[in-house]
C-alpha cells in the first residue's frame, strides 16, 4: 500500500531549540496513529507543522505525492489536512450547522465531504446541529470541533488531545467515533493524547516522541513492552 501521508525529516527550530528534530513517518488511508510522549516532546509542534499552523525549518510533509507543508494552514486544509485544538475552539454563538457550512464552502472537493447529518451521526451529535455551539456540553463541543474539521473533507485528520476533560464513558464514545471516521470515511487520523486507556485500544500504530525525536514506533502492544518508552514516558505499571 502506498502511503497517503509522508512526513520526511521534519525539523522545527525556535532559536537554538529544536522542538521537532528530524521526525519521519508514513500513514495510510484509514490508519489511526497515536502520537505520545512527555510534555514538551514536540507532539503539538509536529501536529502544527502537519496542519500548516507552523512552517517547518526543514523537511517536508507530502500528501498523496504533493508537498503541502510550509504554505499556511488554509492551504493545508485545501490539500486535505484538518486539525483540532487542545482547547475547545468553535465559532462562538454560531450553530454547528452554520460552522459546518462555512467549512464546507471553503473546501474545493465538496463531493468528498460527508453531509452534516452523516458527520453528526458519526460523532453522536444528532439533533444538536441547530443549537448554538456555546449551548453544547463541553464533551459535545470537543466532538463539534472534530465535526468542523470533518466538514472540510479531510483525508488526514489531526486530533490534539481530543479526550481532554472527558470522563471514561465520553472518551470511549470518542474512541468509537474516531474509529468510525477512519473506517467509514477512509480518513487517516493522528491522535495526540496522554490518556493511554483511550489511545492504546484505538491506535493501529503508535509513535513515541522524546525531545523532538522519534523514540519508538510500533503497534500498541510493542510500545507497551518497549523498555525505552517505559523508562522515559509510560512508567512501570
Amino acid at each position: 500500500m502506498t502511503a497517503l501521508l509522508t512526513v520526511d525529516r521534519v525539523v522545527k527550530r525556535y532559536g537554538g531549540l529544536a522542538a521537532v528534530d528530524g521526525v519521519s513517518f508514513t500513514l495510510g488511508a484509514g490508519d489511526v496513529l497515536g502520537l505520545i510522549g512527555p510534555n514538551g516532546s514536540g507532539k503539538t509542534t509536529l501536529l502544527g507543522i502537519l496542519a500548516g499552523t507552523h512552517d517547518p525549518t526543514s523537511g517536508t510533509v507530502t500528501l498523496d505525492g504533493r508537498v503541502c507543508s510550509g504554505r499556511g494552514a488554509h492551504r493545508a486544509v485545501h490539500a486535505g489536512i484538518a486539525r483540532t485544538f487542545q482547547t475547545t475552539r468553535l465559532f462562538g454563538g454560531w450553530t454547528l450547522r452554520e460552522a459546518l457550512r462555512l467549512a464546507r464552502r471553503e473546501n474545493r472537493r465538496p463531493a468528498d465531504v460527508a453531509s452534516d447529518e452523516r458527520i453528526a451521526a458519526l460523532l453522536a451529535l444528532d439533533g444538536l446541529l441547530d443549537r448554538p455551539c456555546t449551548s453544547l456540553t463541553s464533551a459535545a463541543q470537543r466532538l463539534a470541533m472534530i465535526a468542523l474539521a470533518l466538514a472540510t473533507g479531510p483525508r488526514v485528520l489531526l486530533l490534539d488531545e481530543p479526550a481532554v476533560g472527558m470522563d471514561t464513558a465520553e472518551s470511549a464514545a470518542l474512541a468509537r467515533a474516531v474509529r468510525d471516521v477512519a473506517d467509514d470515511l477512509g480518513v487517516a487520523v493522528v491522535v495526540v493524547d496522554h490518556n493511554m486507556h483511550f489511545l492504546m485500544p484505538l491506535a493501529d500504530s503508535v509513535l513515541v516522541m522524546a525531545s523532538g525525536t522519534v523514540l519508538a514506533t510500533g503497534t500498541p502492544a510493542q510500545i507497551r513492552a518497549d523498555e525505552a518508552v517505559i523508562a522515559s514516558y509510560l512508567g512501570e505499571t
Binding site: A51, T53, G72, A73, H74, V77, H78, A82, R83, F85, R89, L90, F91, G92, A99, L102, A103, E106, N107, L148, A149, A151, T152
Partner: peptide
C-alpha cells in the same frame, strides 16, 4: 476566531 477560520480553510 481567526486561527480557527484559517484552519477550516
Amino acid at each position: 476566531d481567526e486561527d480557527l477560520a484559517r484552519h477550516v480553510g
